[in-house]
Amino acid sequence: MFHRILIANRGEIALRVIRAARELGVETVAVHSTADSNSLHVRFADQSLCIGPPPSKESYLNIPAILSAAEVSGADAIHPGYGFLSENAEFAEMVQHSGLGWIGPRPEMIRMMGNKIRAKEAMKEGGLPQLPGSEGVVQDERDLGRLAEKIGFPVILKAAAGGGGRGMKIVREKEQLSQMYRTASAESLAAFGNGDMYVERYVERPRHIEIQIVADEHGNVIHLGERECSVQRRHQKMLEESPSPALNDKLRERMGRVAVDAMKKVRYNNVGTIEFLPPSAMETCTSSATWNGRATSRSRSSRTSTATSSIWASASALSSAGTRRCWKRAPRRR
């Protein structure tokens, strides 16, 4: 058990960590920019240190300043929360090399899950079935045309290093492939510094269901149930509901078991998410299609043509050092 942890984050994220640490009897150190000196997480922590001016790159993304704050405060470990540096494998390694504990996935896990192609390969090795798609990076437009013909239209182009819907294009006709590929690759290069793309079959109007995974350092993995995340706008979730109204007990148990088994096989640690794409025909309790990255679901539909007798899966697990996107029911107004 750590005696004192530094929280490399701010706001509500840091407050959650402070509350959990207090329940465990662990002291907390808050870091903050000059603009956040009066924030709640600064007031509630046992210690606080200013690490820079308001711009995030000069404070919450300033690795030397955070490591110096940990040394000055006598912290045993760093908790990055989520966002900022939580998925930065280099930061995790620097924390460990400094002799501090890292409260998050191992650096190799962050690297693996941070690249969707590597994550697809890892999940395939872990036994998670895949959506039809490219085995790796699309090499060029000719390679893309061959793969799309093999997969069958519609297909979806996705950024290997991407997320949040950026660098993602749905292609329904062969004539659109080249232009969509160039556009998506340029978007990915601008957003992530990496223009690599891969292609998968596009699932029409599936549901988007996530299974939350928690894994310790001793190989124990559990899941905390599912979240229905099908209500989206521009590939971004707007509402999460738990439990999902689309699943029956048999399918819920199967999805949870598949997710846990896959994470055990890749030796995942800490908190992560497996995202499933069941077709909306799940209301008829047929089967499911599993996960295709973090932003591929669409509106609900009565369409049944995508339901099959197998579970499909595509890409990865989203690593996070803290609980992500916890959904709470709003109080009912009287």
Rank of each mutant, 00 (worst) to 15 (best):
L144S: 09
F84M: 12
E149G: 13
E135W: 06
F91A: 11
L85G: 09
H79Y: 10
L100V: 05
F153E: 00
L85T: 04
G83T: 05
G101A: 14
L144E: 03
S134P: 08
A77S: 10
V137F: 00
E108D: 15
L131S: 09
G81L: 12
F153I: 00
G126Q: 04
E141V: 15
E141D: 09
H79Q: 09
A122M: 03
G152C: 11
I156Y: 00
L85P: 04
H97D: 15
K116D: 02
A92R: 02
G81Q: 11
N88V: 07
P154H: 04
G127I: 09
H97I: 04
F153N: 01
F153Y: 15
G83E: 06
I117P: 00
K116M: 06
G133W: 00
Y82Q: 13
N88E: 11
Q96A: 15
Y82P: 05
G99Y: 12
S134G: 11
A159D: 01
R106M: 14
H79G: 10
A148E: 02
E121L: 12
V138K: 02
G83R: 05
G127V: 09
G101Y: 08
K150I: 04
L131H: 07
I78C: 10
G126D: 04
K116I: 08
H79T: 09
E108W: 05
M123N: 02
V155C: 07
E87R: 07
R106E: 14
L147M: 14
P107R: 08
V138N: 02
R118E: 15
G99P: 14
I151D: 00
R111H: 13
E135F: 08
P132M: 12
G127N: 11
E149Y: 03
P107C: 08
G114Q: 10
I151K: 01
L144W: 01
S86W: 03
R142I: 15
G104W: 01
G104C: 11
P105K: 05
I117V: 15
G114S: 13
V155L: 05
P107H: 11
L100N: 05
Q96F: 07
E108L: 07
L85H: 09
A77N: 09
G114C: 14
D140G: 13
L157T: 00
N88F: 13
L128T: 13
V137S: 00
I110N: 02
P132F: 08
M123K: 00
M123E: 01
I151W: 01
F91V: 10
V137D: 01
I117S: 00
E93T: 15
L147C: 06
A119K: 00
M94R: 15
A122G: 09
S86M: 07
M109G: 11
F84V: 08
G104I: 04
K158L: 11
R142G: 14
K116C: 06
K150V: 05
M109P: 04
K120S: 06
P107K: 06
K120P: 03
E125F: 14
G136I: 05
K158Y: 05
P129C: 08
W102Q: 12
V138G: 03
N115P: 08
V138M: 13
S98N: 15
G152V: 03
R146W: 00
K116R: 14
L128A: 15
L144F: 08
G126H: 04
K116Y: 02
L85E: 06
R146I: 10
A89D: 15
P105E: 09
I78P: 06
D140M: 12
A77R: 06
